[in-house]
C-alpha cells in the first residue's frame, strides 16, 4: 500500500496549495481522529482500572494500572469461559474463512476459465445470493437445522459460514483478468491435469484475491451475531461476540462483570486490529 501512497503524494505536485485549505483539511482530519479513537482509548483505559476507580477516577486517564490483574480475573472467571469463546471465534472465523476461500476460489476459477452448460445461470444465481443478507437467512437456516435436529452444534454455525457468494464474484473477476488462458493451455500441453494446474499455477496468480476473500469472510463470520444467537444454547459453543453480549445483559444483576466486560473487549479488539491493517492493505484488490 505504501507504493501507491507515495506516488499519490508525488503526482499532485502542481502549484502549492494555500495554507488555508491545507489547515482546513488537517482540522477535519484531527476532529475525525478524535471521534474515531477516543472511544477506543476510553475502552483501553477502562480496562486497566479496578472496580472502584472505574466509576471514581478520571475516565480518560489511568488510575492504578490493573490491566494484567483484570485479564487474570477474566481468565479465571467461570473457568476461563472467555478464552473458550475466543477459541471458538477463531475456529469459526479462521477455519470457516479458509474453507470458504478455497471453495469460492475454485468456483470462481471454473466460472472464469471453463465453458459449460448453465454457467451464466449458475453465476447469476450466486450473484443473487450476494444480495441476500446473512441475517435474513438466519431464521430459515434455523428451521433447516432443526428439521435434522442439528441446532446447538458447532456445525450449525460453522457450515453456513463457509459459503461466500461475494467471494465467488471476486474470484471470477480476478481469475478472468489475472490468469491468462495461454498459461492454462501451456500447463495442459505440459501434461498437467486441470486440478493440478489450478493448485500449482492458478492459486499463485490469484493469491491477492484469495487474501481479500479470506479477510472479508473472516470479518463477516467474526461479526456475525444473529446466526449464533438463534442457533446456540450451550455457552461452551458461543463465539466471543455472543458471549460478551450475554455477559453485558447480565451486568445489571451481577455488577462485578463490568470490569471483565471492558477488559474482555480490549483483549479482543487488539486482537483484531492487526487484521484491520491487513484489511486496509488489501482493500485495493477488492
Amino acid at each position: 500500500m505504501s507504493a501507491p501512497t507515495t506516488s499519490a503524494t508525488k503526482k499532485h505536485q502542481g502549484p502549492r496549495e494555500s495554507l488555508f485549505s491545507r489547515s482546513g483539511a488537517m482540522l477535519v482530519m484531527a476532529i475525525c481522529t478524535f471521534y474515531f479513537l477516543v472511544p477506543i482509548w476510553w475502552l483501553f483505559v477502562a480496562a486497566t482500572k479496578d472496580r472502584g476507580d472505574f466509576t471514581s477516577s478520571a475516565p480518560l486517564w489511568f488510575a492504578d494500572f490493573n490491566l494484567i490483574e483484570n485479564i487474570v480475573n477474566l481468565a479465571n472467571y467461570r473457568d476461563g469461559l472467555f478464552f473458550q469463546w475466543m477459541l471458538n471465534s477463531i475456529l469459526y472465523a479462521g477455519a470457516g474463512a479458509a474453507v470458504a476461500t478455497l471453495f469460492a476460489t475454485m468456483m470462481g476459477y471454473a466460472l472464469a476459465k471453463y465453458s459449460f452448460p448453465g454457467r451464466e445461470t449458475l453465476f447469476n444465481v450466486v450473484l443473487g445470493g450476494v444480495l441476500v443478507p446473512a441475517t435474513a437467512l438466519a431464521l430459515p437456516l434455523f428451521l433447516v437445522f432443526s428439521q435434522v435436529g442439528a441446532t446447538n452444534t458447532f456445525w450449525s454455525v460453522f457450515l453456513p459460514s463457509i459459503v461466500s457468494p461475494f467471494g465467488v464474484y471476486l474470484a471470477r473477476i480476478y481469475a478472468t483478468s489475472s490468469v491468462p488462458d495461454e498459461l492454462v493451455e501451456a500447463a495442459r500441453i505440459d501434461g498437467s491435469g486441470e486440478i493440478r494446474t489450478f493448485f500449482t499455477v492458478a492459486t499463485r496468480l490469484m493469491t491477492p484475491a484469495m487474501v481479500t476473500i479470506f479477510l472479508f469472510q473472516f470479518v463477516t463470520i467474526w461479526n456475525n451475531f444473529f446466526l449464533p444467537l438463534i442457533m446456540l444454547r450451550d455457552e461452551k459453543l458461543f463465539p466471543v461476540t455472543l458471549g460478551l453480549y450475554i455477559w453485558n445483559s447480565q451486568v445489571n444483576q451481577i455488577p462485578e462483570i463490568r470490569a471483565y466486560v471492558s477488559s474482555a473487549h480490549c483483549c479482543r479488539s487488539s486482537r483484531s486490529s492487526s487484521l484491520s491493517s491487513a484489511c486496509s492493505a488489501s482493500g485495493a484488490v477488492g
Binding site: 505504501s2 501512497t5 499519490a8 503524494t9 499532485h12 505536485q13 496549495e17 485549505s21 491545507r22 482546513g24 483539511a25 488537517m26 482530519m29 475525525c32 481522529t33 474515531f36 479513537l37 472511544p39 477506543i40 470479518v219 467474526w222 461479526n223 451475531f225 461476540t241 455472543l242 460478551l244 453480549y245 453485558n248 466486560v261 473487549h265 479482543r268 479488539s269 483484531s272 486490529s273 487484521l275 484491520s276 491493517s277 484489511c279 486496509s280
Partner: peptide
Amino acid sequence: PLVRGKRFFRLAFFAPYAVPGVIAAV
C-alpha cells in the same frame, strides 16, 4: 495533497471497523 500523515489517518479511521457491532454497541 492537502494532508500529511496519510498512513496514520487511514489506520485511525479504519480502526473502529475492527470492533464488531456488538462490542461497539456495548
